[in-house]
Structure formats: C-alpha cells, structure tokens
Design a protein around this nucleic acid. Structure first.
Ligand SMILES: [Mn+2]
Ligand SMILES: [Mn+2]
Ligand SMILES: [Mn+2]
Ligand SMILES: [Mn+2]
Lengths: 220, 220
DNA sequence: ACATATTTTTAGATTTGTCTAAATTTATTT
DNA sequence: AAATAAATTTAGACAAATCTAAAAATATGT
C-alpha cells in the first residue's frame, strides 16, 4: 500500500468529503478552510500528492482523488468510524466526545488491527453519528435519507443521522432527548421562521430551521 | 501537561529504559543504538529536551530524566502496556504481534481514553509480557523475580515474565509451549554449556543458557 | 604521561510541512 | 473589453527531525 503521512491522509480525507466522495474537483481554498491551513500550504501538498499518484491536480483548476487516493481516503474513514464505534460501545464515551480522539486513532497503521477491531465490534455498518462504515474493500451502504427540514407536513420517519456532528449540536440533541433511532413526525411548519413543530416519540417539540436542517430521517 | 511530539516521547522512553527507570545517566551512544538513530541526532534532541525541562543534560556527561520527564515517560509506558493488554485480551492478537502496534498507539493523546481503557480491561497490573503497568499516578508494583539462568538446582517457580520480548523469542516460547504462569523447576545445569534441564509443568525440556537468561521466575 | 581510540558534539545539508508576502491567473463588474 | 476583485500559485523563510563529515572532548593502553 501507499506510504502516507499523517498530514497527507488528512488532506485526502478533506478532498473526499468536500468533493462528493472524491469524484468532483475541489478548490484550493475549500481544502484550506476545511483543514484550517493556508491556501499556499494546500498548493504545496497538492503538488506532492500529485507526484505520489494520489490526486489529479491541474493548476488553478482544483483537485480530485485518483482511485488510489480514494481507496486511501476510504481506509482512513473506515478506521475513523470504527474507532468511534469502539469508543462509544466499548468505552462508553458519549457521541460528542469521540471525534477528536478518532482523528488521532484513524492514522494507526495495521491492517490486522482494523480487521480484528471490526470483528470485535460485530462488523458495524454505521458509526455513532449514523455515517456508514466502509468495509475492507471500501464498499459502504448508501441509504436514502432526507433532512427533516425538507419533509412535507405529516411525514414521519426514523432519525438515522446528523449532518453536523459538532459537539455543540450533539449536546443540544442530548439535552432535548433526541437520539438516533427515534421516530419523528413533522406536525406543522411555521411559515414565518421555518421552525417546525414535531413529535419525537410521544413528545411535542418545536425545532428551529437550523436544527431541522441537520437531522437525517429515513421515511416510514 | 507537556506538549511532547511523537519523537520526543520515544527518546524519553529510551532514556527511562536504559537508565534503570530514568534515574541514572545514560550515554548518547546508548540512546542512539536503542532508537536506531545517529549519535548527532541524539545530541540535538537532548538539547531540545533539556530546554523543555524534560531531561538533565550535561555535555559529554550523559543525560537523565527530570521528574517531569519521568512522569511523561511513565505515561507513555502505561499507554503502551495497556494497549498491549487490549490487543491480546480483546482482539486476540498473539503476544509476539502487539509491540509494533502499541508503539503507535502509545502516542495517542487523551487522558479519558487511557483511563476508560484501563477500566475496560479491569485495571490490569501486568502486560502480556509480564511487565508491570503504571497507574495514572505513575506508580507500579515491583515484584521480585529472578532469571531462570541464575537459579540454583532444584529451585522452582512460576514463569512471570520475559526479559527479551522480541517476536523471535516469544515465538520460540510458543513453539515449546512455555507460557506466563507455567510452573518451572530447574532439574540440573550442564556445566559445559550452561544449558538447563527443566520441568515445565509435567514436561522435561532442555533450555539453552540464552533462553534461560530471558525468562523471569517468581520463586515458590 | 602521551599517543591512540572512542565518544560526543558541532557544522552544514536535507526533507516535510508549514507560514507570509508577492506575483500570477481566473472570475466578476462596470 | 477593461478594470477590479478573488482565488491560486510562487518565492522565500522557518521549525522539527534527521543525516554525514569534521572537530573536540574524554577514555584507554603502553
Ligand atoms: Mn468523526
Ligand atoms: Mn462520525
Ligand atoms: Mn511492547
Ligand atoms: Mn510489553
């Protein structure tokens, strides 16, 4: 396999996430913003990743992942999400605490470790935030899901994921007792501010547009 | 806490191990040999670690750990050994496969992770090679153990650790079905080559001096 | 004690990954 | 189609970690 550094792996992941799974070209500035670095550093790195055959880079035109780059990115994402499952299921971290630790663990290099971890966890398909976990060949299920904010009135579904997985959003959900797996029904939309009146299980709640735009539902 | 790099941590660990738990001064060359680097790189690093207050360094006189350096080294060793236990107990790695992965895992920075891992493993006192695991304050049990090679005839004890934990030695032990916890009795020593005739459980075995010099026993 | 060998340090170079400031290219307005 | 703005790249610098070769300090042997 390719011999990628910690830093190179972070760039590959960013390109994957920014360019709808790596296929689309991504701009220098978008990457810089994503990994909190300067555009000039991104350009440097893109030239190096291009040398290594991990990205397709055309000056001023943005980058996309090569097949090799995509495989590498998926293997990092696989590790990230498996470690998140481990932290929540086995060590009882809460879902808002796992990301930063997983950012470190995802760079550990040992195929055996990843595969045994996967087995130890019972080959989970989704991480604690509802994101799907690629298998060892890089395949992952894509399920159809919709943002709560985009549903028509009276639609209902199961909450299966979050779009924003920042600690502050996750803690908001905890405080309001909204968890993955909950049944949510859209009762009515307030035209003025686009806030929603919803039924979470048995409870009536009012959710702002911002909240609703970050909750994924699987329609029932 | 101190903000140590991956590389700095490896140097601190080396100094700890080479200078009987960090208290004694260690030579530049010994460190270089231990971490497979050049003596000039060691000198450079010692000057940097000294700046950071992690080691006591006197030109040409060797180096020892400060209290802060010792604490840091112990925290890395704690993590290394806890991860080794995890890999063996939970993921079913064999004891000769864990070291290299633990060398990576020991650098993950999250106090919460380490403490929850410790709890998850049931606060183990020893790693798979019989080395003791420091607790969160850096305390660890020291038990009296003796090398099999140094026992008098007819002495017997429990095998509680290995001095050399290289994969090749550990695999030799596996092939010969010698494990930690086995009862070993020294039947006779051959004067010519210092090899030993021993009883491992019920089995009679002849062990070379080299093997015997790497097995720790607790006398019965 | 003096010559020789060994150990350790310094000097200078290299790689990786980052930065700021300036130059260049591409996009947007008027 | 210029002029202006925004995005991107280049140039040059820097810190961390490493190396090789040369110089300096320490240890050893006669
Ligand atoms: Mn995450
Ligand atoms: Mn996640
Ligand atoms: Mn080890
Ligand atoms: Mn060990």
């Amino acid at each position: 396999m390719s011999n990628t550094s910690h830093s190179e792996e972070n760039y590959l992941k960013a390109i994957f996430h920014l360019g709808s799974e790596g296929t689309q070209a991504v701009s220098t500035n978008a990457i810089a913003r994503n990994i909190k670095t300067q555009p000039s550093s991104v350009t440097d790195m893109m030239q190096r990743l291009s040398e290594k055959g991990l990205v397709n880079y055309r000056k001023y035109k943005g980058v996309s992942l090569t097949d090799l780059g995509r495989d590498t990115a998926l293997s990092i994402i696989r590790k990230h999400r498996l470690w998140e499952v481990f932290l929540v299921e086995k060590l009882h971290f809460s879902w808002d605490e796992v990301h930063d630790v997983a950012e470190q663990l995802e760079h550990i290099k040992s195929e055996k470790l990843v595969d045994l971890l996967d087995e130890h966890l019972g080959f989970p398909q989704y991480d604690p935030h509802g994101d799907s976990i690629p298998d060892k060949d890089g395949n992952y299920p894509s399920r159809d899901k919709q943002l709560l904010s985009q549903l028509p009135e009276n639609a209902q579904g199961l909450c299966i994921g979050v779009k924003d997985s920042s600690a502050s959003f996750l803690k908001y959900l905890d405080r309001n007792k909204i968890s993955l797996g909950d049944k949510i029904k859209l009762l009515e939309r307030e035209d003025f501010d686009n806030s929603l009146l919803v039924l979470v299980g048995e409870r009536k709640l009012r959710l702002s547009q911002q909240i609703a735009a970050n909750l994924y539902l699987k329609l029932l």
